[in-house]
């Protein structure tokens, strides 16, 4: 089980980084999403893996519980990553519509641009 999770994290990370290194905004967003999965699973797994032991207290008998803290952390991370993805998507869309170009590299500045005259 540990091998499966670790290798999944590795593959998701590799795929995410590769897509982030592309030259267009949409693949970069896809890469960010993949990287988000990888990071969330990574953080979740720091609580170690357990099956059938959800951290829901059982009033009637003594049972084992998995670590609840990473879960709370990841829960907020998932929601925040939605906010982040939405902002990035919006920026990418706005940039594309304004210039009809979705390359992520800035075009070379003409000489003298940005000088404080």
């Amino acid at each position: 089980m540990e091998l499966l999770v670790a290798s999944a994290v590795g593959i998701l990370t590799a795929a995410g980084v590769y897509l982030i290194l592309r030259r267009r905004s949409f693949p970069v967003i896809l890469g960010l999403s993949l990287l988000t999965y990888a990071v969330n699973v990574f953080l979740f797994a720091t609580g170690r893996l357990a099956t059938g032991a959800p951290p829901i207290l059982n009033k009637y008998e003594e049972v084992a519980y998995t670590d609840p803290l990473p879960q709370a952390l990841v829960l907020t991370a998932i929601v925040i990553s939605f906010g982040m993805t939405a902002v990035v998507v919006m920026i990418a869309l706005g940039a594309y519509l304004s210039s009809l170009d979705d390359r992520t590299a800035m075009p070379a500045e003409p000489d003298g641009a940005g000088d404080d005259a």
């Binding site: 540990e2 994290v9 590795g10 593959i11 990370t13 590799a14 795929a15 590769y18 720091t46 170690r48």
Partner: peptide, 29 residues
């Protein structure tokens, strides 16, 4: 591709090492 494979190996290896060991310090959970 090379950069991403190295990054993936790093992340995967790190979490695998973590998963195979118990907590180093008492947990606050």
């Amino acid at each position: 591709g090379a950069i991403s494979v190295v990054a993936g190996l790093g992340a995967g290896g790190l979490i695998y090492a973590l998963l195979m060991r118990d907590f180093a310090f008492p947990t606050i959970s």
